[in-house]
């Protein structure tokens, strides 16, 4: 029997008066509810059954896992310090240069991708650049660039700069599209040209956020630089990869702790910089 909304409400009131009250279900139709539930359970069963676990291998690895956890209590910074230092230096330099280059290139692209200040053809070209840069994972781009430029930090730097362009330009463009139109109009009303408008109305509004985002991207680039080393693009990732493959967990633990410490440091300093630019 199908109830109208009013009758349903009346029914609920009668029930409540008799002390029977349940929360209204999120999905009203019981059939749909059942279907969704069955679908979810089926998916879970299928998905979980497709996870093949080689228990013998896990048991063998469990010891190694414990060893790895234990390594965190006694990280070994000393015996491979030269490798760690070289990797760290490469990662840090890669981070700085890629962020600078990436941001420098992202600013014009971002300006071009803002609908309210760029002409249509430029807008589409810039949106295209952003889309290409954002579609692919850093690691996949890194493989491509390693093939093109050979192993080493140069390929890593180009990868990170490329990824930075998409990230920064997109956020910058959105920021410019959101900016306060009245200020732009006020400056334009004084007879300012395109560049002058940009300098006096747009820049002051987006600058604090641009700096904040650059700091954030610096942080991301450092973390990513640890990853792209795995595919041969230099940096601390390569050191980490080697140490794990050699089962030198003490060294791996040391590298991971260094990464965590640097990320923490950059998080604190970026919150400081953001407060300072406000």
């Amino acid at each position: 029997m199908k109830l109208t909304e009013e009758a349903l409400s009346e029914q609920r009131q009668q029930d409540a008066l008799a002390g029977r009250w349940r929360r209204l279900p999120l999905i009203q139709s019981p059939l749909l509810r059942l279907t969704l539930l069955v679908g979810l359970v089926t998916y879970l069963i299928l998905a979980l059954s497709s996870v093949e676990v080689n228990w013998a291998r896990v048991a063998e690895g469990a010891g190694r896992g414990l060893e790895f956890l234990a390594a965190f209590t006694r990280p070994d910074f000393i015996s491979r310090w030269d490798d760690i230092w070289a990797g760290l230096l490469e990662s840090l330099t890669m981070t700085v240069t890629s962020t600078v280059i990436g941001v420098a290139l992202a600013v014009p692209v971002g300006l071009g991708a803002a609908r309210n200040i760029a002409p249509m053809p430029v807008y589409w070209v810039c949106r295209g650049i952003i889309a290409v840069s954002r579609t692919f994972q850093e690691v996949i781009i890194a493989i491509l660039f390693v093939v093109m430029f050979g192993f080493g930090p140069f390929a890593g730097m180009i990868t990170l700069a490329f990824a930075t362009i998409g990230f920064m330009a997109k956020l910058l463009a959105e920021d410019i599209e959101d900016l306060d139109e009245r200020q732009v109009e006020a400056v334009r009303a004084t007879g300012a040209g395109w560049w002058q408008t940009l300098n006096h109305a747009v820049q002051p509004q987006v600058m604090p956020r641009l700096i904040g985002l650059s700091m954030y991207r610096l942080d991301i680039n450092f973390r990513e630089s640890a990853v792209i080393g795995i595919v041969g693009a230099g940096g601390i990732g390569a050191t980490l990869n080697t140490s794990i493959n050699r089962y030198e967990y003490d060294t791996s633990a040391a590298v991971l702790l260094i990464i965590i410490a640097i990320v923490l440091l950059s998080e604190y300093s970026s919150s400081f910089v953001r407060r300072w630019t406000q």
């Binding site: 190694r64 973390r223 795995i230 493959n245 990464i259 965590i260 990320v263």
Partner: peptide, 14 residues
């Protein structure tokens, strides 16, 4: 701080 790829690398050895 640690990318899933690095986690995966560790877990594969384990």
């Amino acid at each position: 701080s640690i990318n899933s790829l690095i986690w995966a690398m560790l877990l594969v050895t384990i």
